[in-house]
Design a binder for these strands. Structure first.
Length: 201
DNA sequence: AAACGGATTGGCT
DNA sequence: GCCAATCCGTTTC
Protein backbone atom coordinates (compact mmCIF):
# COMPACT_ATOMS: atom_id res chain seq x y z
CA UNK A 1 0.00 0.00 0.00
CA UNK A 2 2.63 2.58 1.02
CA UNK A 3 4.39 3.93 -2.06
CA UNK A 4 7.86 2.51 -2.64
CA UNK A 5 10.71 5.00 -2.29
CA UNK A 6 11.64 4.43 -5.95
CA UNK A 7 8.31 5.94 -6.92
CA UNK A 8 9.63 9.39 -6.02
CA UNK A 9 12.76 9.13 -8.15
CA UNK A 10 10.84 9.47 -11.40
CA UNK A 11 12.22 12.54 -13.16
CA UNK A 12 8.99 13.18 -15.03
CA UNK A 13 7.46 15.46 -12.44
CA UNK A 14 4.48 16.26 -14.66
CA UNK A 15 3.44 12.62 -14.92
CA UNK A 16 4.01 12.23 -11.22
CA UNK A 17 1.82 15.22 -10.39
CA UNK A 18 -1.00 13.55 -12.33
CA UNK A 19 -0.29 10.14 -10.85
CA UNK A 20 -0.51 11.47 -7.31
CA UNK A 21 -4.19 12.29 -7.85
CA UNK A 22 -6.12 9.58 -6.01
CA UNK A 23 -3.20 8.62 -3.78
CA UNK A 24 -3.81 8.89 -0.05
CA UNK A 25 -1.71 11.23 2.08
CA UNK A 26 -1.35 10.21 5.74
CA UNK A 27 0.02 11.86 8.86
CA UNK A 28 0.42 10.40 12.33
CA UNK A 29 0.78 13.02 15.02
CA UNK A 30 0.93 12.06 18.68
CA UNK A 31 -0.62 8.73 17.82
CA UNK A 32 -3.50 10.26 15.86
CA UNK A 33 -3.79 9.22 12.23
CA UNK A 34 -5.49 11.40 9.65
CA UNK A 35 -5.52 10.97 5.88
CA UNK A 36 -7.06 12.32 2.72
CA UNK A 37 -7.27 11.49 -0.97
CA UNK A 38 -5.19 13.87 -3.08
CA UNK A 39 -7.54 15.71 -5.45
CA UNK A 40 -5.42 18.60 -6.75
CA UNK A 41 -1.70 19.00 -7.47
CA UNK A 42 0.77 21.24 -9.27
CA UNK A 43 4.10 20.33 -10.84
CA UNK A 44 7.21 22.47 -10.29
CA UNK A 45 9.96 21.47 -12.67
CA UNK A 46 13.07 22.61 -10.84
CA UNK A 47 15.92 24.88 -11.88
CA UNK A 48 14.38 25.94 -15.18
CA UNK A 49 10.97 26.74 -13.68
CA UNK A 50 10.57 30.46 -13.02
CA UNK A 51 7.79 29.67 -10.56
CA UNK A 52 10.00 27.35 -8.51
CA UNK A 53 11.97 28.41 -5.46
CA UNK A 54 14.81 26.38 -6.97
CA UNK A 55 14.86 28.39 -10.21
CA UNK A 56 18.38 29.02 -11.46
CA UNK A 57 19.79 26.45 -9.02
CA UNK A 58 19.09 28.84 -6.22
CA UNK A 59 20.42 27.13 -3.10
CA UNK A 60 19.52 28.65 0.24
CA UNK A 61 18.80 27.13 3.62
CA UNK A 62 15.15 26.93 2.61
CA UNK A 63 15.47 25.50 -0.90
CA UNK A 64 18.09 22.93 0.07
CA UNK A 65 15.27 20.51 0.90
CA UNK A 66 14.24 20.40 -2.76
CA UNK A 67 17.75 19.45 -3.89
CA UNK A 68 17.72 16.30 -1.78
CA UNK A 69 16.76 12.90 -3.18
CA UNK A 70 13.06 12.53 -3.96
CA UNK A 71 10.78 11.03 -1.35
CA UNK A 72 10.79 13.70 1.33
CA UNK A 73 8.45 16.56 2.24
CA UNK A 74 9.14 20.20 1.39
CA UNK A 75 7.05 22.41 3.63
CA UNK A 76 7.43 26.17 3.62
CA UNK A 77 5.59 29.17 4.95
CA UNK A 78 3.58 31.25 2.49
CA UNK A 79 2.16 34.73 3.17
CA UNK A 80 3.54 34.47 6.69
CA UNK A 81 0.77 32.14 7.81
CA UNK A 82 0.16 29.15 5.56
CA UNK A 83 2.19 25.95 5.50
CA UNK A 84 2.34 24.52 1.98
CA UNK A 85 3.22 20.85 1.52
CA UNK A 86 5.15 19.52 -1.47
CA UNK A 87 6.43 16.10 -2.40
CA UNK A 88 10.10 16.32 -3.41
CA UNK A 89 10.75 14.15 -6.46
CA UNK A 90 13.61 13.05 -8.76
CA UNK A 91 17.15 12.01 -7.80
CA UNK A 92 19.42 14.21 -5.68
CA UNK A 93 20.27 17.64 -7.14
CA UNK A 94 17.26 17.70 -9.47
CA UNK A 95 14.88 19.83 -7.38
CA UNK A 96 11.52 18.84 -8.81
CA UNK A 97 8.46 18.98 -6.58
CA UNK A 98 4.71 18.44 -6.56
CA UNK A 99 2.55 20.82 -4.56
CA UNK A 100 -0.46 19.13 -2.96
CA UNK A 101 -3.23 21.70 -3.28
CA UNK A 102 -6.30 19.84 -2.05
CA UNK A 103 -7.36 16.61 -0.39
CA UNK A 104 -10.66 14.87 0.32
CA UNK A 105 -10.84 13.89 4.01
CA UNK A 106 -10.78 10.10 4.44
CA UNK A 107 -9.52 9.04 7.86
CA UNK A 108 -9.74 10.82 11.22
CA UNK A 109 -12.32 13.26 9.96
CA UNK A 110 -13.24 14.34 13.53
CA UNK A 111 -9.64 15.38 14.12
CA UNK A 112 -9.58 17.22 10.81
CA UNK A 113 -12.76 19.09 11.77
CA UNK A 114 -11.14 20.12 15.01
CA UNK A 115 -7.92 21.30 13.35
CA UNK A 116 -9.87 23.37 10.85
CA UNK A 117 -12.59 24.53 13.23
CA UNK A 118 -15.30 23.72 10.73
CA UNK A 119 -17.62 20.81 9.93
CA UNK A 120 -16.81 18.22 7.27
CA UNK A 121 -19.69 19.56 5.18
CA UNK A 122 -17.64 22.63 4.22
CA UNK A 123 -15.36 21.89 1.29
CA UNK A 124 -13.04 24.66 2.49
CA UNK A 125 -12.00 22.25 5.21
CA UNK A 126 -9.32 20.79 2.94
CA UNK A 127 -9.49 22.57 -0.44
CA UNK A 128 -6.54 24.85 -1.16
CA UNK A 129 -2.89 24.16 -0.25
CA UNK A 130 -2.89 25.95 3.10
CA UNK A 131 -6.14 24.29 4.15
CA UNK A 132 -5.11 20.80 3.02
CA UNK A 133 -1.87 20.97 4.99
CA UNK A 134 -3.61 22.28 8.07
CA UNK A 135 -6.26 19.57 7.85
CA UNK A 136 -3.56 16.93 8.14
CA UNK A 137 -1.63 18.84 10.81
CA UNK A 138 1.31 19.51 8.51
CA UNK A 139 3.53 22.42 9.55
CA UNK A 140 7.16 23.37 8.99
CA UNK A 141 8.36 20.74 11.44
CA UNK A 142 7.52 18.25 8.67
CA UNK A 143 9.99 19.85 6.30
CA UNK A 144 12.55 17.35 4.96
CA UNK A 145 10.78 14.41 6.63
CA UNK A 146 11.05 11.10 4.84
CA UNK A 147 7.83 9.97 3.18
CA UNK A 148 8.64 6.36 3.93
CA UNK A 149 8.66 6.97 7.69
CA UNK A 150 5.75 6.68 10.11
CA UNK A 151 4.93 10.36 10.60
CA UNK A 152 3.95 11.22 7.03
CA UNK A 153 3.53 8.91 4.07
CA UNK A 154 1.50 8.24 0.92
CA UNK A 155 -0.46 5.10 0.07
CA UNK A 156 -1.93 3.65 -3.11
CA UNK A 157 -5.56 2.74 -2.49
CA UNK A 158 -6.11 1.76 -6.08
CA UNK A 159 -7.97 4.92 -6.90
CA UNK A 160 -6.98 5.66 -10.47
CA UNK A 161 -8.18 8.18 -13.02
CA UNK A 162 -8.27 8.12 -16.79
CA UNK A 163 -6.96 11.18 -18.62
CA UNK A 164 -10.53 12.27 -19.30
CA UNK A 165 -11.24 12.37 -15.56
CA UNK A 166 -8.43 14.87 -14.94
CA UNK A 167 -8.73 18.61 -15.54
CA UNK A 168 -5.66 20.63 -16.40
CA UNK A 169 -5.12 24.36 -15.95
CA UNK A 170 -2.38 26.94 -15.32
CA UNK A 171 -0.86 26.99 -11.86
CA UNK A 172 -2.34 29.31 -9.27
CA UNK A 173 -0.63 32.37 -7.84
CA UNK A 174 2.46 32.31 -10.04
CA UNK A 175 1.79 35.36 -12.23
CA UNK A 176 5.34 36.53 -11.48
CA UNK A 177 6.75 33.53 -13.38
CA UNK A 178 6.52 35.30 -16.76
CA UNK A 179 6.48 32.81 -19.65
CA UNK A 180 6.01 29.96 -17.19
CA UNK A 181 2.95 31.48 -15.54
CA UNK A 182 0.49 29.95 -17.97
CA UNK A 183 1.96 26.47 -18.38
CA UNK A 184 -0.69 23.74 -17.90
CA UNK A 185 0.83 22.23 -14.77
CA UNK A 186 -2.10 22.16 -12.38
CA UNK A 187 -4.08 18.94 -12.23
CA UNK A 188 -7.29 18.12 -10.43
CA UNK A 189 -9.98 15.48 -10.35
CA UNK A 190 -12.79 16.55 -12.64
CA UNK A 191 -16.00 17.13 -10.72
CA UNK A 192 -14.47 16.66 -7.27
CA UNK A 193 -15.67 19.23 -4.73
CA UNK A 194 -12.33 19.36 -2.95
CA UNK A 195 -10.56 21.67 -5.38
CA UNK A 196 -9.35 25.19 -4.67
CA UNK A 197 -11.40 28.15 -5.82
CA UNK A 198 -9.20 29.97 -8.34
CA UNK A 199 -9.90 29.05 -11.98
CA UNK A 200 -12.11 26.13 -11.07
CA UNK A 201 -12.71 24.85 -14.58
C1' DA B 1 20.15 44.13 11.84
C1' DA B 2 16.50 45.20 8.51
C1' DA B 3 13.72 44.91 4.57
C1' DC B 4 11.10 42.08 1.51
C1' DG B 5 7.27 39.76 -0.51
C1' DG B 6 4.55 35.84 -1.26
C1' DA B 7 2.87 28.26 -4.88
C1' DT B 8 -3.41 32.16 0.19
C1' DT B 9 -7.50 32.43 2.80
C1' DG B 10 -11.78 33.87 4.22
C1' DG B 11 -14.81 37.44 5.05
C1' DC B 12 -17.80 40.58 2.98
C1' DT B 13 -21.15 42.21 -0.67
C1' DG C 1 -17.24 36.95 -6.96
C1' DC C 2 -14.17 40.39 -5.24
C1' DC C 3 -10.84 42.31 -2.27
C1' DA C 4 -7.62 43.03 1.32
C1' DA C 5 -5.30 41.41 5.70
C1' DT C 6 -1.32 39.34 7.27
C1' DC C 7 3.21 38.61 9.11
C1' DC C 8 6.87 36.04 9.92
C1' DG C 9 10.63 33.44 7.71
C1' DT C 10 14.03 34.23 4.32
C1' DT C 11 17.35 36.73 2.32
C1' DT C 12 20.41 40.28 2.02
C1' DC C 13 22.96 44.32 3.74
Amino acid sequence: MKLNSDYYLNEDVISLAKDLLGKVLYTKIEGEITAGVITETEAYFGIKDKASHAFGSRRTARTETMFAQGGIAYVYLCYGIHNLFNVVTSPKDNPNAVLVRSIEPLIGVEIIEERRSMPRTKVAISAGPGSAAKALGIDRTFNAKDLSGDEIWIEDHQIYFNPDQISISPRVGVAYAQEHALLPLRFFVKGNKYVSKPNKV
